[in-house]
Design a binder for these strands. Structure first.
Lengths: 190, 190, 190, 190
DNA sequence: AATGAATGAGTCTTCATTCAT
DNA sequence: GATGAATGAAGACTCATTCAT
C-alpha cells in the first residue's frame, strides 16, 4: 500500500512539527499529496494513525539498536544503548512525546505495551544474557528492569531538550551521570 | 484571586476527566460556575492554564513528600519517596501525563524546569545530605541524579497504570524492582 | 462558479437590508442556501466580498448607462446620465453607501479606483468626444472632471433619500438644479 | 461636563484610527482615562456618540471656514472654501467617511441634515450675497446649490486620499480642476 | 480506488452592557 | 457620580467527515 505509507510519513512530519492538536487532516493530505477523502480509505479518524506512527518509531529504534549495540561488554552496550536512544529521540524531536500523548488522547493507551514490546523484549534478553555471563548482578529481574531502564533513558532524553545550545557541556555531564547511574543500578562489571 | 483558583481547580478536573483536547472552555467555566468571558479575564487561551495546573500538582507533591518522607535512613527514604510519588500520581490519574503533553503542545515547555525546580531541589538536597553521611556513593552528582530519579519513578508510575486490577502482584513486583534498582544505582547502604 | 455567484447575490441582499455590521455570515449562507463552511471556500472573511459586490454594482450601472444614454446632444446626455445614476442608486437603496463604507472599513479602499475605472473611463470618453465636437468648453480635463461629476451626482443622489415622500417636488427641483449646475460647469451648449 | 468631552474626543480618535466597527468601548474608555461603566452614564450605546462627533466635526469646519474664507471676491472665496474643506477633511482622515457610515449604521441618518445645517446655511448665504452682487449667475438656487457644492468638494476630497505621495502633482491638478469646475458651474466672475 | 467540493456541528473568542461596591 | 469585574449572548471561523462523480 504505497498510499498508506505516504499517509503515515506525512502524519509523522505534521504531528512532529505542529503537534497533534494543531495538525489537521488537511495538513496531512497536502504533504502526502493525496485527496482529502483518500485519507479515510485507510484510516477511520485523525487519531487512528497514531498506533502506526508509534510502530514506525519503534521499528526505527529497533533497527538502530540492532545496528549500533554490538560490543561484547555489557557496560559498553549500556553506553551504546543510551547513545542510540538519545540520538533517535533527538532526530524525531517532539514525536516521542506526541506518540504518548496521542495514544493517551485516543484511548489506544492499551496498545502502548504491545508497541513497545519488541524493545522491552530485546533489552530483556540482553539483560538475561548478561546475568548468565555474570556481568550484572544476579538479582536483576530482566523484564521489569528493561522497562525501568527504557523509562529512565527516555525521560532523561526529554530533559536534555531543555538545555539550550550553549549548555552542551551540561547535557553531556547529565548523560554521563545517567550511564553511571544505570551501571551501578545493574551492578555492571566490565 | 478567588475566581482564578476556581478556574484552575475546574480545569484540573476537566482535563483529568476528558483529556486536554476534548475539554472545552465551556466545560471549565461550567464547573467553575463562572461566565464564559470571565475565563478570559484570567487566562488568554485554553492552554495557558497549564503552567498553573502543573504548579498546583508540584505543590501538592511537595507537601506529600515533606509529610511522608521522614525516615533517617536514606534507603528507607527512597522507599517513602517512591511510595509517595506513586500514590500522588495515581490520585491525579491522567493529570501528570496531561501536564506534560499539555506543556509540550503549548510552547510552555520551557517552564517545565521552573515548575519542577522545587522537587529537584528538594531531592538534590537529600542526596547531598546522604552523600555527606556516607550512606550513598560519593560519585553521585546530586542535581543530575535528582532529575534521573524523578524521571525513573514517574515513568514507572505511568507504566503501572497499564496493569489491570488482577495484576496487583505484578505491579508490586515492578515497584520493588524499581526500589532495588534505585538503591543499587545510588550505592545506598543502610 | 455557481456557488460564488450565489454568495455575492445573497451578500448584496443581506447587506442592503440589514447593513454591513448587522449582517452575519449566517444570514448570507442561509440566503445563498449553502453551508456555513462553503462561504469560506470562496471568501476568507465577511468583508472580503465587498469588492465583488462593488464590481456587480458598477457592472449594472454601466449596462444601464450604455442602454439609456443615447442622445447625440451632450446636454441631453447629461440629463440621461443623471437620471440613470439616480434611478440605479435608488434601486440599490443603501447599497451604494454600504459599498463605500464597507470598502473603507476593510482596507480594500485602494480597490475603489479599480472598481470605478470602467465608469470613469466611459464618462471620460464622452467628455473627450464632446470637447472635440465643441459642445463643451475646451478647458475641461476629461479624466479629473469625470471623477468630479460622478462624485457630484452620487452625493446628490444620497441627499435625495433624505426627502420624504411628500417632498417629491423638492427632490425634483434639487435634481434640476444639479443638471443645470453640471451644464454650466462644463460650459455645455446644445 | 468634562467627562463627556473626554469621551467624545477619545471616540473621535479611536474611530478615526481603527474604524467604527473595530473600535470597542474599551478602546474609548482607555483613551478617555475613565472606567468602562462611566461611558454609559453619558451615552446609552456605542453608536450614540456619533451625532456628537459629527457636531464637533462640523463645528470645527465652520470655525475654519469663518476664519479662512475672508476674500471679497467670490471666485477667491471659492478657492478658500475648497482649500479649507480639503485641509479639514485631511486632518480628520477617515473621520468624515466614518461619520456618514456611522450615521447610516445607526439609523441616525435623519440627523444628517440637521448636523450639516449650519454649513449649508452658511454657504447658502454666501451664494445669495454673491447673487445680489452679481458675481455669480442669477439662476443659482442657493439652498440646493450649497448642498451640491458641499457634496462635490467632499467627494473629491475623499478621492484625493487615493493618490499616493508621489502623485502630489496629480492631486493638485485634480483640485484645480474642481475649482474651475465650480467656477463655471456658478458662472462666477471676478 | 481516488477525488475534492461541500457540509454544519462545534469552539473559541469578543465585547456591549450591567451592577454591586 | 464613578468604578471595573463580571456577564453571556452572539458570531466568526475551523475542520473532521461525507459523498457524488
Amino acid at each position: 500500500m504505497e498510499k498508506r505509507e505516504r499517509i503515515i510519513t506525512a502524519a509523522i512530519e505534521a504531528f512532529g512539527e505542529k503537534g497533534v492538536e494543531k495538525t489537521t487532516i488537511s495538513d496531512i493530505v497536502k504533504r502526502a499529496n493525496i485527496a482529502q477523502g483518500t485519507y479515510y480509505l485507510y484510516f477511520p479518524s485523525k487519531l487512528s494513525v497514531m498506533p502506526d506512527i508509534a510502530a514506525v518509531f519503534v521499528d526505527y529504534l529497533m533497527t538502530e539498536l540492532t545496528n549500533n549495540v554490538t560490543s561484547s561488554s555489557f557496560k559498553q552496550q549500556l553506553i551504546e544503548i543510551v547513545d542510540t536512544v538519545f540520538r533517535t529521540t533527538d532526530e524525531h524531536k517532539k514525536l516521542a512525546v506526541l506518540i504518548y500523548s496521542g495514544l493517551t488522547q485516543s484511548e489506544h493507551l492499551q496498545q502502548w505495551e504491545t508497541i513497545y514490546a519488541p524493545l522491552y523484549d530485546w533489552l530483556s534478553e540482553r539483560l538475561e544474557t548478561a546475568k548468565q555471563a555474570g556481568t550484572i548482578r544476579q538479582t536483576v529481574q530482566a523484564d521489569y528492569t528493561a522497562r525501568i531502564i527504557v523509562g529512565s533513558i527516555e525521560s532523561t532524553a526529554e530533559q536534555l531538550y531543555l538545555y539550550n545550545q550553549e549548555e552542551d557541556a551540561k547535557a553531556n555531564e547529565h548523560k554521563q551521570e545517567l550511564i553511571q547511574f544505570l551501571s551501578y543500578a545493574l551492578g555492571a562489571s566490565d
